[in-house]
Design a protein around this nucleic acid. Structure first.
Length: 801
RNA sequence: GCCGAAGUGGUGGAAUGGCAGACGCGGCGGACUCAAAAUCCGCUGAGGGAUGACCUCGUGCGGGUUCAAGUCCCGCCUUCGGCACCA
């Protein structure tokens, strides 16, 4: 029996070697092809490493270790996305400075990651809260500002009364604060935005070129939300004037069925010409209610439609000349389209509901089986023929849209327009622990960027960084810092006190890894020339519509201004599934089903933790934790260790096709099928155990194939057999394509599609040979009508009846 | 409402249209042991049958295509994820 494997001393030994000899640190070695593997850098929370991190990081860890043996120069970096609210909140609660908390958390994370044995290049660690790093975050912001892509605007924003912070829409979904769960209020505020909408078309279009899973592309497409339609100008008449009112519609073909107009309660029509409104009190009351309504309530889809008729105003349909009433209703949003719609109740569910409630006429303009007085007919493009529509009559929907847009453009009534659901990126936080926005407000010069030579604009070392009740940043309390002079004219001026959102630092960190210590550039052009794009980026589905889009946007911008050489940052993307608790529920403290990776490492060692996480199931799907499953992987490791005592020249290798194993395991790793790769290695191990011995070549191959997942034990075993040689200096095994198949194959014999038996025939046999073998075996009797033979796979005969 | 993913033994999960259930867990039986644990060997979808290899059924439900369907098509049900009064 082999000695018991002592994982503690072995894992320590190899980790010491990897990290003290800097085995995984890389430079721009032009003699080798490069490979850049990236994982989403963690937020260093006080809770430490989570098993979810292990799953997320282990895929690129496996790929990195494999690629190195294949001869690639692999950049596999790590860093910390360390600005953010949880740290700040924890710091306030424990009366410490967030700097201190962050440093402690980073130290803890680094130690934990090393104990798992990850092959990161630890010389390239980035920390988004390091002034040497955020200097460049600020520099990029200034470039965006100079190119007109950063602007300050007053809008209604989501304000969390508890966190005292303005939230982006995506942080307050369902009207609930992402951070604390409180209900969000609407407030007017002057905030910074980035014009990501200018990049919407490109972000969408480039998806075609990228190797992202379809589900990720789909989510990004939905998020960007492109629609083709037209801006159409109606005229609103009232006592003493006219007002051109532009509506956005994707269905200009239905304009003959527009029986009323609806404007959002915030629409300028109701400000600019409020004098003309006859029922002022009613409208004001309604506007007030809409403002107080939380966004969540307002967007409830199935609630009753509410609204008020705007008395004293009437709109003119520019195509038919008909006069139609004007309403205001909160089902029309100010921040999409133009904040005003033409309502076509016959063919839109919302307009239909509204029309029924207010007894407005419903005119059918697309022929269908349904009675539009009873229910709306919401025709998809291309289904149905136009009726009651003048010159469009008889056309199908699609050509009708085209014809109407042409007509509108000729007559100047409207013009084609593409719109996007994606909104500009609200780029601000009213909190302390973030990058200061490097802008100075000068009474004469307006918004002036901080000069490059003054970057980084450091966060002042505040003692009290609790948020202010009025929603302004804690930085506003630091008057020494706020009061400055204008870099242009020298007048007394004030600094911007908002900080950047947490998404800022993570929008370009992958570039910083390429030259983490460069003091003169965002990324050293030489380093960028060598490392270029991220070859493979793994991360969570939860970041697909925020971080992944934001960082693509920044990279495209940096490409446009000549800072980086590639338009898209990531060539390939994968996404791990969630690790659930053993109860099948999402891990959470309140459920008490959280597994701490530290505990697993202590009890079983890093290799078993890594093996189990990779074996647990389909990498891209959620998988429940299992204590029993861990034990199985522990057993596998011990059995693998037993191979040391089984090496023999006399081993019979006929039952193990190494070429096939090398191909299958390698392919599985490359396709994120880590679970089946490990299963195949288990099968091979069982084969070797059944025969009791293996050759040195088989031993080496098994060790190297398992090495990316379990590097400690395989390093030790390889070293013992090869007089201290290092497995990380070997090469990934090659396979001979000619030897992937055996001399003989066993194939099933079917009669009329039913399994009758099996025969063994020489590989590559033709139909006649296979058929005679099947007959010889007595598996076929009766008159044969047809034979289906798939070489080396199956033979199926159809009998005459 | 729209878009997407999924539904397979006791269990986690495998299967380019070609032997359903690989591999792991659990369970049962055996070996070793005074005994237990650990380890090793064997069996393990359901039903039937002469219980050594024969039959029937079986991948959420109902139809279909095919020599052959977990896989493809049509129609449902359920679960999960994303978007959402988006005009």
């Amino acid at each position: 029996m082999p000695e018991k494997y002592d994982f503690r001393s072995v894992e320590k030994k190899w980790q010491d070697y990897w990290y003290s000899e800097r085995v995984f640190e890389v430079t721009e070695d032009k003699s080798k092809p490069k490979f850049y593997a990236l994982i989403e850098f963690p937020y260093p929370s006080g809770a430490g490493l989570h098993v979810g991190h292990i799953r997320a990081f282990s895929s690129m860890e496996v790929i990195s270790r494999k690629k190195r043996l294949e001869g690639y120069n692999v950049l596999f970096p790590i860093g910390y996305d360390a600005f953010g609210l949880p740290t700040e909140n924890y710091a306030m609660a424990t009366k410490q400075h967030p700097r201190k908390v962050t440093d402690e958390n980073i130290a803890k994370f680094s130690e934990q990651l090393m104990e798992v044995g990850y092959s990161f290049d630890w010389s390239r660690v980035v920390d988004t809260t390091d002034p040497g790093y955020y200097k460049w975050t600020q520099w990029i912001f200034i470039q965006l500002f100079k190119h007109g892509l950063a602007y300050k605007a007053t809008t209604s924003v989501n304000f969390c009364p508890k966190c005292k912070v303005v939230l982006a829409n995506e942080e307050s979904q369902g009207g609930i604060c992402d951070r604390c769960g409180s209900e969000v209020e609407q407030r007017e505020k002057d905030v910074w935005f980035l014009r990501i909408r200018n990049y919407a078309e490109r972000l969408l279009k480039n998806l075609d070129k990228l190797n992202y899973p379809e589900r990720i592309k789909t989510e990004q497409q939905n998020w960007i939300g492109r629609s083709e339609g037209a801006d159409v100008t109606f005229t609103v008449r009232f006592d003493g004037g006219e007002y051109p009112l532009v509506v956005y519609t994707t269905r200009p073909d239905t304009i003959f069925g527009a029986t009323f107009l609806v404007v959002s309660p915030e629409h300028p029509l109701l400000k600019d010409h409020f004098d003309a409104v006859l029922n002022k009190a009613e409208i004001e009351d309604y506007q007030q209610k809409a403002r107080l309504k939380k966004e969540f309530d307002r967007v409830q889809v199935n609630k009753d439609k509410t609204g008020i008729k705007v008395e004293g105003m009437v709109a003119v349909n520019p195509i038919t000349g008909a006069e139609i009433p004007v309403f205001t209703a909160d089902y029309v949003m100010m921040d999409y389209g133009t904040g005003a719609i033409m309502a076509v109740p016959a063919h839109d569910k919302r307009d239909w509901d509204f029309a029924k409630k207010f007894s407005l006429p419903i005119i059918e303009v697309i022929k269908s089986d349904v009675d539009v007085q009873v229910e709306p007919y919401c025709a998809k493009e291309g289904s149905g023929v136009m009726v009651n529509s003048g010159f469009l009559n008889g056309l199908k929907v699609k050509p009708a849209i085209k014809k109407m847009i042409e007509y509108m453009e000729q007559t100047g009534v409207g013009k084609a327009k593409v719109d996007y659901k994606m909104k500009d990126w609200a780029f601000n936080r009213q909190r302390y622990w973030g990058e200061p926005i490097p802008i100075i407000h000068c009474p004469h010069c307006g918004q002036v960027p901080v000069p490059d030579e003054e970057l980084p604009l450091r966060l002042p070392d505040l003692k009290d960084f609790t948020p202010t009740d009025d929603g302004t940043s804690p930085l506003s309390k630091c008057t020494d810092w706020v009061n400055t002079v204008c870099p242009v004219c020298g007048s007394p001026a004030k600094r911007e006190t908002d900080t950047m959102p947490q998404w800022a630092g993570s929008s370009w960190y992958f570039l910083r890894y390429e030259s983490p210590h460069d003091g003169a550039h965002v990324v050293d052009p030489e380093a960028n020339k060598y490392w270029g794009q991220v070859d493979w980026y793994n991360g969570g589905m939860e970041h697909v519509t925020r971080h992944l889009i934001y960082s693509r946007f920044w990279n495209q911008f940096l490409y446009d201004i000549g800072v980086v050489k590639d338009e898209e940052p990531y060539i390939r993307r994968s996404a791990q599934g969630l690790i659930l608790g053993s109860d099948g529920e999402k891990m959470s403290k309140s459920r008490g089903n959280v597994v701490n990776p530290d505990d697993v490492v202590k009890q079983y060692g890093a290799d078993v933790l890594r093996l189990f996480i990779m074996f647990i199931g389909d990498y891209e799907k959620p998988a429940p934790w299992s204590e029993e499953g861990i034990k199985g992987c522990n057993r596998f490791r011990q059995r693998f260790w037993g191979l040391l005592d089984m090496i023999s020249d006399k081993a019979d290798t006929s039952d193990l096709n190494l070429d096939s194993l090398v191909k299958q395991v390698g392919d599985d790793y490359e396709n994120c099928k880590f679970n089946t790769a490990i299963a195949k290695l288990m099968t091979a191990l069982n084969t070797v155990y059944a025969r009791g011995s293996l050759t040195k070549k088989e031993f080496d191959t098994l060790c190297i194939l398992l090495y990316p997942v379990a590097p400690h034990i395989t390093s030790e075993m390889y070293s013992r057999v090869h007089g201290g040689a290092k497995i990380d200096k070997t090469s990934w095994p090659k396979y001979d394509p000619k030897r992937l198949v055996e001399d003989a194959v066993e194939i099933p014999v079917q009669v009329m599609g039913k399994l009758r038996g099996r025969i063994t025939i020489p590989t590559g046999s033709d139909e006649a040979q296979a058929l005679s073998a099947a007959k010889e075996a007595g598996l076929i009797d009766g008159d044969i009508a047809k034979v289906i033979y798939v070489k080396d796979k199956i033979i199926n005969v159809v009998l005459k009846r």
